[in-house]
Computed example of a mutant assay.
Amino acid sequence: MKFLLVTSVMASTSSVAAQDNTEIAFAKSVLASVQAKSIAENREYCGYLGRDAAGRLASGPSIRGKRDECTPVWPDALEVLASWHTHAGYDAGAWSEVPTVIDIEADEEEGIDGYVATPGGRLWYVDTTDMVVSQLCAVRCMQVDPRFVIGSEGEIETSYTYRQLLAREAEGD
Protein backbone atom coordinates (compact mmCIF):
# COMPACT_ATOMS: atom_id res chain seq x y z
CA MET A 1 0.00 0.00 0.00
CA LYS A 2 2.82 2.38 0.86
CA PHE A 3 4.41 1.80 -2.57
CA LEU A 4 1.16 2.63 -4.39
CA LEU A 5 0.75 5.84 -2.42
CA VAL A 6 4.30 6.99 -3.21
CA THR A 7 3.85 6.18 -6.89
CA SER A 8 0.60 8.13 -7.19
CA VAL A 9 2.06 11.14 -5.39
CA MET A 10 5.10 11.14 -7.66
CA ALA A 11 2.98 10.86 -10.78
CA SER A 12 0.71 13.72 -9.78
CA THR A 13 3.48 16.12 -8.79
CA SER A 14 5.91 15.55 -11.63
CA SER A 15 5.85 18.44 -14.09
CA VAL A 16 8.07 16.38 -16.37
CA ALA A 17 5.64 13.45 -16.60
CA ALA A 18 3.57 15.20 -19.27
CA GLN A 19 6.68 15.88 -21.34
CA ASP A 20 7.05 13.78 -24.48
CA ASN A 21 9.76 11.13 -23.99
CA THR A 22 10.80 11.48 -27.63
CA GLU A 23 11.38 15.21 -27.15
CA ILE A 24 13.34 14.58 -23.94
CA ALA A 25 15.57 11.99 -25.67
CA PHE A 26 16.11 14.36 -28.58
CA ALA A 27 17.00 17.27 -26.28
CA LYS A 28 19.44 15.04 -24.39
CA SER A 29 21.12 13.99 -27.63
CA VAL A 30 21.43 17.60 -28.81
CA LEU A 31 22.96 18.69 -25.50
CA ALA A 32 25.23 15.62 -25.40
CA SER A 33 26.58 16.58 -28.83
CA VAL A 34 27.92 19.92 -27.49
CA GLN A 35 28.63 19.06 -23.83
CA ALA A 36 32.30 18.06 -24.32
CA LYS A 37 33.04 21.18 -26.36
CA SER A 38 31.25 23.37 -23.82
CA ILE A 39 33.31 21.90 -20.97
CA ALA A 40 36.64 22.00 -22.87
CA GLU A 41 36.15 25.62 -23.98
CA ASN A 42 34.41 26.71 -20.75
CA ARG A 43 31.70 28.32 -22.87
CA GLU A 44 27.95 27.92 -22.94
CA TYR A 45 26.39 26.54 -26.11
CA CYS A 46 22.74 27.19 -26.88
CA GLY A 47 19.98 26.83 -29.41
CA TYR A 48 16.35 25.90 -29.91
CA LEU A 49 14.60 22.67 -30.71
CA GLY A 50 11.30 22.23 -32.43
CA ARG A 51 9.53 20.60 -35.32
CA ASP A 52 10.44 21.10 -38.96
CA ALA A 53 7.94 21.42 -41.82
CA ALA A 54 7.59 17.62 -41.96
CA GLY A 55 6.83 17.45 -38.23
CA ARG A 56 10.18 15.92 -37.28
CA LEU A 57 12.12 17.05 -34.22
CA ALA A 58 15.06 19.22 -35.20
CA SER A 59 17.50 21.63 -33.63
CA GLY A 60 18.26 25.12 -34.84
CA PRO A 61 21.88 26.26 -35.08
CA SER A 62 24.22 25.66 -32.15
CA ILE A 63 25.61 28.98 -30.92
CA ARG A 64 28.85 29.38 -28.94
CA GLY A 65 28.32 31.81 -26.10
CA LYS A 66 30.39 33.23 -23.29
CA ARG A 67 31.34 31.59 -19.99
CA ASP A 68 28.03 32.45 -18.36
CA GLU A 69 25.67 33.51 -21.12
CA CYS A 70 24.52 32.55 -24.57
CA THR A 71 22.03 34.07 -26.98
CA PRO A 72 20.55 31.57 -29.43
CA VAL A 73 19.34 32.44 -32.92
CA TRP A 74 15.60 31.88 -33.43
CA PRO A 75 15.22 29.33 -36.28
CA ASP A 76 12.43 30.50 -38.60
CA ALA A 77 12.30 27.06 -40.20
CA LEU A 78 11.15 25.41 -36.95
CA GLU A 79 8.03 25.47 -34.85
CA VAL A 80 10.05 26.13 -31.68
CA LEU A 81 9.18 23.99 -28.65
CA ALA A 82 12.04 24.74 -26.27
CA SER A 83 15.42 26.34 -25.78
CA TRP A 84 18.51 24.38 -24.80
CA HIS A 85 21.87 25.36 -23.37
CA THR A 86 24.88 24.09 -21.48
CA HIS A 87 26.32 25.65 -18.34
CA ALA A 88 29.95 25.61 -19.59
CA GLY A 89 32.79 24.08 -17.55
CA TYR A 90 33.07 23.58 -13.81
CA ASP A 91 33.88 26.68 -11.79
CA ALA A 92 34.14 26.30 -8.00
CA GLY A 93 32.95 29.90 -7.59
CA ALA A 94 29.84 29.57 -9.76
CA TRP A 95 26.44 28.01 -9.17
CA SER A 96 26.12 26.00 -12.35
CA GLU A 97 24.43 22.75 -11.33
CA VAL A 98 20.90 24.20 -11.33
CA PRO A 99 19.13 26.36 -13.93
CA THR A 100 19.14 30.02 -12.95
CA VAL A 101 16.39 32.57 -12.44
CA ILE A 102 17.55 34.15 -15.72
CA ASP A 103 17.18 30.78 -17.47
CA ILE A 104 13.55 30.33 -16.42
CA GLU A 105 12.64 34.00 -17.01
CA ALA A 106 14.15 34.01 -20.52
CA ASP A 107 12.17 30.92 -21.52
CA GLU A 108 8.98 32.29 -19.98
CA GLU A 109 9.41 35.57 -21.87
CA GLU A 110 9.68 33.65 -25.14
CA GLY A 111 6.70 31.44 -24.27
CA ILE A 112 8.66 28.19 -24.45
CA ASP A 113 10.18 25.62 -22.10
CA GLY A 114 13.87 24.72 -21.92
CA TYR A 115 16.58 22.16 -21.30
CA VAL A 116 19.86 22.76 -19.44
CA ALA A 117 22.97 20.54 -19.15
CA THR A 118 25.41 21.15 -16.29
CA PRO A 119 29.15 20.51 -15.88
CA GLY A 120 28.27 17.79 -13.36
CA GLY A 121 26.36 15.95 -16.08
CA ARG A 122 22.82 16.76 -14.95
CA LEU A 123 20.00 17.40 -17.40
CA TRP A 124 17.21 19.77 -16.36
CA TYR A 125 13.80 20.60 -17.81
CA VAL A 126 12.53 24.17 -17.47
CA ASP A 127 8.72 24.20 -17.29
CA THR A 128 7.51 27.78 -17.76
CA THR A 129 3.83 26.89 -17.37
CA ASP A 130 4.34 25.83 -13.76
CA MET A 131 7.58 27.86 -13.32
CA VAL A 132 9.46 24.80 -12.07
CA VAL A 133 12.80 23.27 -13.04
CA SER A 134 13.15 19.49 -12.71
CA GLN A 135 16.07 17.13 -13.11
CA LEU A 136 15.47 14.71 -15.94
CA CYS A 137 18.60 12.85 -14.94
CA ALA A 138 20.98 13.32 -12.04
CA VAL A 139 24.70 13.92 -11.72
CA ARG A 140 26.86 11.99 -14.20
CA CYS A 141 24.00 11.06 -16.56
CA MET A 142 25.77 13.08 -19.26
CA GLN A 143 29.43 13.92 -19.82
CA VAL A 144 31.02 15.45 -16.72
CA ASP A 145 33.78 18.04 -16.46
CA PRO A 146 36.76 16.15 -14.93
CA ARG A 147 37.26 19.11 -12.57
CA PHE A 148 33.70 18.81 -11.21
CA VAL A 149 33.51 18.27 -7.44
CA ILE A 150 30.30 16.62 -6.36
CA GLY A 151 28.69 18.44 -3.44
CA SER A 152 30.56 21.71 -4.04
CA GLU A 153 27.24 23.56 -4.37
CA GLY A 154 25.65 21.77 -1.45
CA GLU A 155 22.67 19.48 -1.79
CA ILE A 156 20.95 19.72 -5.17
CA GLU A 157 17.22 19.04 -5.07
CA THR A 158 15.42 17.19 -7.87
CA SER A 159 13.25 20.23 -8.60
CA TYR A 160 12.90 23.91 -7.71
CA THR A 161 10.05 26.35 -8.05
CA TYR A 162 10.74 29.83 -9.36
CA ARG A 163 10.51 31.19 -5.80
CA GLN A 164 12.97 28.59 -4.56
CA LEU A 165 15.41 29.58 -7.33
CA LEU A 166 15.07 33.23 -6.30
CA ALA A 167 15.79 32.32 -2.67
CA ARG A 168 18.69 30.02 -3.62
CA GLU A 169 20.36 32.74 -5.66
CA ALA A 170 19.75 35.38 -2.96
CA GLU A 171 21.46 33.11 -0.40
CA GLY A 172 24.43 32.64 -2.75
CA ASP A 173 25.08 36.38 -3.14
Results as ranks from 00 to 15, higher is better:
D91G: 05
S96W: 03
V6P: 04
D145P: 01
T7M: 15
A92L: 10
T158K: 13
T71R: 14
A17D: 11
G50N: 00
M10H: 12
K28G: 10
G65R: 02
E169M: 08
V6Q: 12
D52I: 06
A18F: 11
G65H: 03
N42L: 07
A117N: 03
T100I: 05
A170N: 08
R56L: 13
E44P: 05
E41L: 15
S159M: 13
V98F: 02
A25L: 11
E109Q: 11
S59M: 02
A40C: 11
L4N: 13
E97K: 01
G172I: 12
G172Q: 13
R67N: 07
A54V: 08
G154V: 11
R51M: 10
M1I: 13
F148L: 00
A53V: 10
G50K: 04
S134P: 00
S8T: 15
V101I: 09
E69I: 06
G65A: 00
D145L: 07
T128G: 01
M131S: 03
S62P: 00
D91K: 07
H85F: 05
P119G: 08
G60N: 05
E79A: 13
R147H: 12
D52R: 07
V139D: 14
P146T: 06
Y115T: 00
S152R: 07
V16C: 10
E97V: 02
T129F: 08
D68N: 14
D127F: 07
P61R: 12
L5R: 07
D91S: 11
A94F: 02
P119R: 00
C70W: 03
A170P: 07
V9M: 15
S12Y: 14
F26Y: 10
V80I: 09
Q135H: 05
V149P: 02
A17Q: 15
A18M: 13
A54K: 15
I112L: 04
A11R: 14
L4H: 13
L49H: 00
G121A: 06
D103L: 01
K2E: 15
N21M: 14
